[in-house]
Design a protein around this nucleic acid. Sequence first.
RNA 1: GCCGGGGUCGCCUAGCCUGGUAGGGCGCCGGCCUGCUAAGCCGGUGGGGGUUAACCCCGCGCGGGUUCAAAUCCCGCCCCCGGCGCCA
Length: 462
Amino acid sequence: MTWSILRFLRENPDVLRRSLRRRGLDPSIVDKAVELDKLWRQKVREVDEIRHKHNVITRKIASTKDPEEKKKLIEEAKRLIRRRQELEEELKRIAAEREKILLSLPNIVHDSVPDGFDEEHNVPIRFWGKPKVWRGYLDRFKEQTEKWGFKVDYELIDWKPVGHADMLENVLMLGNTIKAAEVAGSRFYYLFDDIVWLDIALLLYAIDFMTRKGYRLVLPPYMIRYKVLMGVIDVETFKDAIYKIEGEDLYLIATAEHPLAALYMGEEIPEDQLPIKLVGISPCFRKEAGAGNRDLKGIFRVHQFHKVEQFIFAKPEESWQLLEELRENAEELFRGLGLPYRVVNVCAGELGDVAAKKYDLEVWMPAQGRYREMVSTSNCTDWQSYRLKIRLIRKKDMRREYVHTLNSTAIASTRTITAILENYQEPDGTIVIPKALRPYLEMFPRAPKEAIHPIKKERVRR
RNA sequence: GCCGGGGUCGCCUAGCCUGGUAGGGCGCCGGCCUGCUAAGCCGGUGGGGGUUAACCCCGCGCGGGUUCAAAUCCCGCCCCCGGCGCCA
């Protein structure tokens, strides 16, 4: 048994208490868990003892010829069973309670994660690019850069860029969320023509990049079972994000991360096969139940989008280095797109139960005057693999350990489109297409090549 | 969806009819032996408890049931293979 949380629970529960406090959660749950684990072990001993007695008698019955003697032994066995059943019932109850509390424990926060309970406390660790800053947002910009001790070169602009939602719907007229709301509800959309090409080109760009890096391309199931879902997410995410298929034990995936993590569930991976690096492509379906009215306009926060996802199964001793690799891959993708970004080290209170550490990559949005999340990169250590029973076998002594799982966005289509709409906007409403995407548009005669132009009123067609 | 066959240790397989401590092969790990990496021999190779020793419990797709005793018999579910039906 090498699940990190259980090990600490028995050997050094203070580590767990500290981790929970840093997340802003009540550490007393650790005491309950320690108590239950002890009680469980004691009950296991009791039950095992009586099972042993019963087994001894049962074996004796098999080898006893004398019918009188046999009858006596069977009576004896029946008596033991009654006693055993009571104890087993008790054990079952305790085991279920223990299991429940163990599975409710969030991952152990890594030492390098900053303190804090909201995104104000996320710590920027790196800035890249030359953001376009509208004069009116200069103070805000400095608040998000210089306050953290970073001197970020920027381009001051006098015109205020149009927001991505207006750009899409009213300037380019290549999106229709009004009709989509009638048809499916808010946070849905119709996209047309050049924006669809852009969506496809972004996905191809990310797939091309990741597979060149040696990541294996995967198209996973878009629906998964409940038990798989519970292996990869916490209860909060479940409530906020997950759509259920009526009448079936199936749930729409919120990200390819979930079916990718489950690719090796219940399996044992020889350590020399690790790390296993995957790049998945899939639609993502999210309820956004906790979002309220945030980002209600446009396609920044929507119920469905396409995403290319990085995923790694790793040996524990390699996972922290691989987290940096995933982050670097995401950064390279966004540098390639020429979108100015910063990377933040997400604070303990904003991590979510699954991750031990998380980086967000946020792109500067000129029309909002804010850096907004485009990518999330997490090391989930053994939190998912314990639940999904994904282990590695050490070559030296055949010992089994839980693998570490890591995931990161490569490109999320609609969100990246919003970033392009604001960052590549010209004063006249033209959107210049990032050079990195052009190879993926060239092959299609009707796809845009260098720019997307505002549609003139008389040509509008929906 | 219906009918039939199947799911046993990392992989392959025996055991199931006829209930009585799950056996063999491969691979892997450790050791022995041989002047060499071959062959051979011995042990180990699922989970849990345990003074981590001895030992014990659990484990044959999952969950129930019958029985002193279930891989084995019965019921439900999941998955795989074949046939029929349906279908892009």
